[in-house]
Write a protein that binds this DNA or RNA. Sequence first.
DNA 1: GTGCTCCATTTTTTT
DNA 2: AATGGAGCAC
Length: 775
Amino acid sequence: MKEFTLSSSSQSNEQESEPTISDVAILKGLNEQQREAVSVTDGPLQIVAGAGSGKTRVLTFRIAYLLQQKKAWPNQILALTFTNKAASEMRERIKQMAGPSAEKIWMGTFHSIFARILRYEAKHLGYNSRFSIYDSDDSKRAIKLILQELNFDIKQIKPRTIQNKISSAKNELIDPDTFKAKFISSSIDDIVAAVYPIYLQRLKQSNAMDFDDLLIKPIELFEKNKEIREKYQDRFKYILIDEYQDTNHAQYVVTQLLAQKHKNICVVGDDAQSIYSFRGADISNILDFQNDYPKANRIPLEQNYRSTKNILRAADSIIKQNEKQLEKSLWTDNHDGEPITLLENLNERDEANRVARHIGMLRMNKGYRPSDIAILYRTNYQSRVFEDALRRKNVNYQLVGGVSFYQRKEVKDVLAYLKMMVNPQDEESLLRIINEPARGVGAKSLQTIIQESRRHERPVWETLQQIQNVDLYKPAKSAIADFVHIIKAAQEKLEEGDLKEAADFILNKTSYLTQLVEENTHESLGRRDNVLELLNAIKYFEKEHDDATLTDFLQEVSLVSDLDKMEAGKPAVTLMSIHASKGLEFPVVFITGLEEGLFPMKRQDDDVDIEEERRLFYVAITRAEKELFLSHAKSRYKFGEEKRMIISRFLDEIDPNVVRTETGASINQRKGGFGRDKSDNPFRDAFSDELKPENRSRWKKPGSSSSSSRSVEYDDQSVTAGDFQVGVKVFHEKFGKGKIIAKEGGQEKTKVTVFFQQAGQKKLLLRFAKLRIVS
DNA sequence: GTGCTCCATTTTTTT
DNA sequence: AATGGAGCAC
């Protein structure tokens, strides 16, 4: 285990070096509000930082100032940032101002900082310091297994739903008992109440923590153990929290706890940029802060240095439509700049091509570099077409987010092997690889093993060690004995200290790589390359860190965000979700997919938080420094089908005086605005296309000779697609009786939406569903 | 027990 | 379009 430098004030040698610049110099070059935000060091402070108001600068200077004024040693400062990358960039700048001791500042994301503390204190929580970190995929699988063990049908009860509910409960610090007492209002909550305690128990038994645990276990630790609490309360003389509007209740409580002794807590945020409510973030944290510290200083940063006036006007016209917001006025000395350009497209390919074309023009005519440009979208899957279009035009791009390297199956498999070396109790990892590559331990054997483990309430790993005593299919038994042997041998290998060698060792012994090579398909070789890349990453990690442990490596892998992997200086256009773009800025920004249902996003039977979507749009707009493009498409593929799209309400809300079409025309003059019938509820519209009369009428006459009712293959050849009309009652083998409520697509691809009395609403491909018409 | 084929579902956003 | 589960043949 790596050593932690927790002992205070003992290691402060380099502390004595003279400041490189004087504090006066530090305060120069800041505006008045910024200067105050930097120099009012003591007591609770809330900085309300509008977009582009130099917030990072203030935080950086503030920390440097604290060091220079000798208010604290570096290791007495805790700075919680939104990404690890933001932390390391800030650290670099502080180093330049205040010297190399900045290395010792506790700076990082909530998750990585608290993981570090938890590893150190693990034994007080009944964990050991080599605990695994479950990512959301691991958690979901664990929950799925529990649901299955409790005999729920995971087709009906989605593990994801349960997972989300448990996660919210955890972040609100609601334990299973409280949940059970308070939230048994719906049947789904009953299931959550049943799964929740088992899930916690499984985590503990696996010596594993999920992402939420990294935030709430410290609270448990501090509440349970006065000594430890005081140790950290003493230690952190100054606490700074960035992106405060996006912290959730657990994060609020844990920092509150830590700040109790010195009460030097500085939070920086902007309620207008709160975009993570789905993760439990709540504006009430800002209000709670004001309640907890009624006398807290409150400093607004209102001058925007980033954007042109036109861009700010656009942003302002959007955000003022929100009712819930704290009053503030953002202003700038910058020029008006170019008007905002509206791009109207036929479909998403047209959109991607047009954006690519504009990028070409921006480079040719205005001298922008690819790294100046970002393409933003609401959902990651939209990136595909842009990648294609840019590749065709030979424009370099970097994709941030989406399915990451570390989520690929083969990479997760190898990581699972590595986790087994470090923490064999880790049940998710064990179950993932016990039969990967296939070694004859099938579903049946596995079920027996799991049942046996549950019966004795012990980790599956322990059952495996005593596999002789389990009544099992013989070949499976010996396979398991081999498996246990390999893991143990690998653990010994790891003791020797070389991570890469230990990883090589286990992949050799399990023939994991050999298997991929032998398969010799295009995909399997791609997977092999990914595994090799992971091995390289281990090697690199060892080189970068003295005394690197496998636990450290695995933790880093679990907690790097996609954003951390983005390269700032790379000569490439950046593609990313709007969420990922928070905190960044680009001279040129394209905001794409401005259509109802997509942005603002609407999910089936789920109410939209329109104000949050609007804040998201606000965040997107305010990423732009000089030029902003807004783009929408009239139709778009969804689930392999073309959907008509309606222009986003956000484009109606934006100040029309700052927007022009591509030809330079004012959008004011266009008759009827964007041609949307505003009396209609746009959400209904976007999602009930298939219910529209003109779509239905195509199917009006059963058995007519129109092409759309051509016979497709069914069991009963006499039934044609035309017979399945909206309103017709049907029977499905599994779902039972139901009624068709919508129909879409054509010929082979005809789909019907059926409301089943038992199973609820389902969308079925007519060609496969074997529906029978009943009367 | 393995692997293939069929079918239903999926798409927010992230540590 | 892509993924993942269920069910079936070997």
